[in-house]
Design a protein around this nucleic acid. Structure first.
Lengths: 220, 220
DNA sequence: ATGATAATAAAACGAACGTTCAATTAATTC
DNA sequence: GAATTAATTGAACGTTCGTTTTATTATCAT
């Protein structure tokens, strides 16, 4: 056989990307073989090379797409001109929503950086730094305006991002907590962490607690 | 050649473990070859199999040792019978100190779990859960005693652990911040996050700020 | 000194890897 | 409907992988 009936380049490429994200997230980049990926897509291994010249090209494409999606999502969610607390709340909500929705993709982008060449690693890190800088700016603005008390802007930004991104390690949709409950709790923790001074009914974050009391969290 | 002069089983095994931790942390478990490891140790690949029957056995041994070290460190640092805030402070200090000191080992234990067989994964997760349970207990005690205000004990414990462990991603010894400065800032953030009510001069964590002001944090 | 044992080297195994190439068929264009 | 282009197959390439086997030498106990 050769070309199969109904074959379509765009559909195949999309299928490869989706299967690759899932496989890499589950097995790891090094552990996933091109033949495994091809089987998942329903195609021969050689066909993959029509769309991605090398395995690393495939990985890089996935990561770049993930980072672009993250930055685009924040650009769309960012409040036009608001006080630091509102902007911080928007950042937290967007970050958690995006990372829960794109769990596998996030896993890949966070865990497989070392499989990138130097140049490509730099490109991804550049995107990541730009995204993180948005948070540092918010923290600095809030700190200078006196509505946050933050010891060290850079360190606090890193701590918050690690904390929020960590959601994907244990969160499973449809289990004990809903996305909105998780987001509310993380928002509350974030606001306390940065020492936000409440200044209105809608910003009383520390009272936004889910209904149920927890017994045990499910690890991993 | 065969046995070399001065060769010693115990020393070789220790050298293998140390080299393996560094190599796996840098390249990843799948990407590190047994021949690479052997070269690093200064030995032939076949010699590794005298000490570890398979590559996965080696990985498991490293991870189990790491988790045992973490639990032992906490057993040694745990305050005998103290109030929740003191216990929480001890937990945070121990966690950060241990993870900074054993950065590479932590990297391996956190990133390579998927390369373990089902049974061995369960063993490591069991150890991890036991360690995390200590933190949940502290949070629950503090919450019930009214000295912490925590929405969800399990979720807060996970958030704190992700935040603290994240230190190893960006912290480099000898750079802008010292270990004690980092620890002080994380302690301060932790106490605010759990809504700890200060009840004495030594527990005024939110004032424990490092001297220098940050300009930019170094990513990765 | 000698025999036992511990530690390693050297070479080889089959399997799996990423990738390439030529052939073949489906879809599209003219 | 013929020519062209797009999509895929099947087979093969050289390399590297984890691991095993066998032989050889250093060390240690007697």
């Amino acid at each position: 056989m050769a070309r199969t009936t109904g074959s379509d380049g765009e559909k195949t490429e999309a299928a490869i990307r989706e299967a690759a994200v899932n496989l890499i997230a589950r097995l790891g980049y090094e552990a996933m073989s091109m033949r495994q990926l091809a089987t998942e897509v329903g195609v021969q291994a050689a066909a993959l090379y029509r769309y991605f010249p090398t395995k690393e090209d495939l990985l890089f494409t996935l990561m770049r797409g993930h980072m672009e999606g993250l930055i685009d999502a924040w650009d769309a969610a960012r409040p036009a001109a608001a006080d630091p607390a509102t902007r911080l709340a928007a950042y937290v909500e967007n970050h958690i929503a995006f990372h829960i929705k794109r769990r596998h993709s996030t896993h890949v982008s966070n865990m497989e950086l070392r499989s990138l060449s130097h140049d490509r690693l730099s490109q991804i890190l550049k995107q990541r730094t730009a995204y993180e800088k948005e948070l540092r700016t918010i923290l600095r603005d809030g700190s200078e305006a006196g509505v946050f008390s933050v010891d060290d802007t850079g360190l606090t930004a890193m701590a918050l991002i690690q904390m929020m991104t960590g959601v994907i390690v244990w969160f499973r949709p449809g289990e004990r907590l809903s996305i909105s409950e998780v987001t509310a709790t993380y928002l509350s923790m974030t606001m306390r962490l940065v020492g936000a001074k409440a200044h209105g009914a809608t910003t009383s974050y520390s009272a936004a607690r889910p209904l149920g009391r927890s017994k045990e969290a499910v690890a991993l």
